[in-house]
Design a protein around this nucleic acid. Sequence first.
DNA 1: AGGAGTTTGTGAACGTGAGAACAAAATCGA
DNA 2: TCGATTTTGTTCTCACGTTCACAAACTCCT
Lengths: 249, 249
Amino acid sequence: MTSSTPSRSRRNGAREDRVERGIPEATVARLPLYLRTLTALSERGIATASSEDLATSAGVNSAKLRKDLSYLGSYGTRGVGYDVEYLRYQIAREIGLTQDWPVVIVGIGNLGHALANYSGFASRGFRVVSLVDTDPKRVGETVGDLQIEAYATLQQIIDEHRVAIGVIATPAGAAQQVCDDLVAAGVTSILNFAAAVLSVPDGVDVRKVDLSIELQILAYHEQRKALAAGGAAAAALEDGVEALEVDTA
Amino acid sequence: MTSSTPSRSRRNGAREDRVERGIPEATVARLPLYLRTLTALSERGIATASSEDLATSAGVNSAKLRKDLSYLGSYGTRGVGYDVEYLRYQIAREIGLTQDWPVVIVGIGNLGHALANYSGFASRGFRVVSLVDTDPKRVGETVGDLQIEAYATLQQIIDEHRVAIGVIATPAGAAQQVCDDLVAAGVTSILNFAAAVLSVPDGVDVRKVDLSIELQILAYHEQRKALAAGGAAAAALEDGVEALEVDTA
DNA sequence: AGGAGTTTGTGAACGTGAGAACAAAATCGA
DNA sequence: TCGATTTTGTTCTCACGTTCACAAACTCCT
């Protein structure tokens, strides 16, 4: 998914390695969580926090948190903990939130609307610079403090605002075409809310958020819980009866 | 996360093991994707598909897909492939989509609105039976074909409709309280859209969808790409200059 | 100054997941 | 009926991620 830059030069220094190889995906995915936790602590006027404190607030194991942070550098003080403000800045810089990221949203239906108004973006360095829809009837409509623009102006918008990140909130059928157009216009990161698998050239990152998939995963576990809690025999029957030998513990 | 039911009885049969241990999390997360792929093929009138076909459509490796499917049982035919309709049913049954899942959404702001109107839920066996909001002014308002109900009626709603899955779309500050109330009322699976870490008792599953985190992950990769593409020297300077030795390949 | 107490950073062990590779099982044509 | 061909199901290996456990490094108190 990430542009594969295999290790080219071999040299000492963990810091150097980080620049070369980057941070493990799993860690990257947690950094925003830590950032949010630190911001919350900062707002409560807390200046220093141990890995244990942070881990509890973030809902993770403290060893994992320490290891995650160690990929960024050695920003803690043994016997003391981490300086909240300092660590917050370091994580923000690492993720790239010390700069401003212009974002364009394509497809202003129910979800697009909600995303356009979502305050969580603006407060974290993301600026929705334009809303685009393929439906000409919607063009001109005001959402939040933006007007919906014509799909034909996509290229112009992306050039003008130097947009690198695009959000797709169209129906599934339109998603691949929109994706292709975004990529052609120079977008290299896409957040996809459409229920479709997007194919993109190398060097373009795609992340997908699929609401119904999340619910389905919950449903699977929910079903298992229901089965485990007494319905085992009935389930075996419904299942076709392979081996109905309930171990009566 | 999942209720830990360690292997109690030891017996042969992969099918038996599946029931005991369940399917790997990573596989569970992909089953809905396969399901969608199969539905799409079915609608195009395709009766049979090889693992290669399915894998391509789903955007995964074919070996991975075969291994995933093998956890459910042996539903393919060597030399032929999988019967689309049959496999679709088996996956649906495994996930628990042959039954209907009543869902309640709490917090009908921008996002709650969008979720309430989201057609992707209904089409996959999830039925939004009630919308709840803490703001008394919103109560009675119509969204889609439902009316927003008072927060105080939460318990009653959950009992009446036998709701097992709750969706939290409130501001972060209210999320934990709502979560506690949902759990107290009998909900055992929660999909959380609020930017907060929820703590729940054992036996309750939580999945979170955080839009701003997804964007931040993209931003990290985007920044790396920008750095890799020429800005390396400038970045090293800004970084504090540890060792500015660019390997000129 | 020195010892007791904290807390980080990391090495090592373990578990899970991904992908290559191949034997087993099916179809098809002669 | 038999060999050629296709495609599944599974084994094996490797990479990645998590957790434990502990030495190193810091503070604080006497």
